[in-house]
Design a protein around this nucleic acid. Sequence first.
DNA 1: TGTACATCAGTGAACGCGCGTTCACTGATGTAC
DNA 2: TGTACATCAGTGAACGCGCGTTCACTGATGTAC
Lengths: 191, 191
Amino acid sequence: MTQDTLRTRLITAGLEILQENGLNALTLRACAARVGVSHAAPAHHFSGLSGLITGIIAKGFTQFADTMEEDRKAAPPTPLGQVTGICTGYMRFSKEHPALFALMFNTSGEIDKTDPEFAATSARAYGLLHDACAPYLPVTEHPNATEVLVWSLVHGLATLQLGESLKVAEDNGNPPTIEELLNGLSLKVHP
Amino acid sequence: MTQDTLRTRLITAGLEILQENGLNALTLRACAARVGVSHAAPAHHFSGLSGLITGIIAKGFTQFADTMEEDRKAAPPTPLGQVTGICTGYMRFSKEHPALFALMFNTSGEIDKTDPEFAATSARAYGLLHDACAPYLPVTEHPNATEVLVWSLVHGLATLQLGESLKVAEDNGNPPTIEELLNGLSLKVHP
DNA sequence: TGTACATCAGTGAACGCGCGTTCACTGATGTAC
DNA sequence: TGTACATCAGTGAACGCGCGTTCACTGATGTAC
């Protein structure tokens, strides 16, 4: 795959650096060095570091959606099976790619949300969650209440586990899994 | 309060910088400059930037717990009223201090979790949530399932709202509030 | 088929920047006697 | 009460570092004629 464009290879290098050394190590120069190119080369493909990061996040959302879809397909075709599969993939991705996951949902957002590639890939990931929640009745009068509930729950659990915050709440052993928590919600499907 | 110690004033300055200019602006030199002291002075009080950040986070957890307790006291003395009050305070703090909130739960953790001040203040904040969830039956066989459920839910909602991720799920108007979502859970109290 | 020219990705050197850190110093404060 | 001394918080200058960015350049590729 040496015919990959330099832009693509820089994004791949950025994903690897993020995985191995974390966000602070993610610089234009480090990506260029990993690809084996001069540190001035990335300027021909990205508008600064924020442009590269936007590309990395877009690629990250693709991998994220792939992971969720994979676990959804391996799950029972029932409504609860499908939403559990999506959420299991959500949790799995956050554990396998902690720095990338944190960057993708980064609050301090140095990211260009109008970037078309970002918009498309993040919309696909959200769509998977949305569709998995569609069979359920809203838990409040808000039409989107169930998906906001499920999304907040899985996202909060993933974030707290990554930060190891939950350890303070673990009297004995592991915290409940997302599967157990979703079961505990007793969501009702549309009649 | 000019008799405040320089250590305290540096932490206060750091909280202000975080609030006004975000995490990237938080440096030893910026804190020293805001206090009006030479940039070498902080070295007498903190072991580098990470030491200062640890102090800022500890102070942040105190403010966080104060906010939650304030809203809890203003709420009805019922189990649902109390846990809703805590969670409303949780959401309010995340909106009033977004950069600080993000730093406190930062995954890439350059923080020393063994710092006694951090341990004490974060434990107090967690204790408020724990106590508010105590009246409820666990939603799964895990004894802490309800507090993990509530914590994940409120933390996820706060984080997603800060990152504006939820906007993609808002067909019409605002997302459901944490109060509505907690109501929708129909948690059962201990008999 | 061959020639002249335009385009453009990548080079390598140089730049200025803000950062944390070091270090000899100063001057105030407290303590021993 | 007075003197000598130790402690220590803050100073200001200097350091090296990695960063993003700029810029003249080279060399390959494609195109017009």
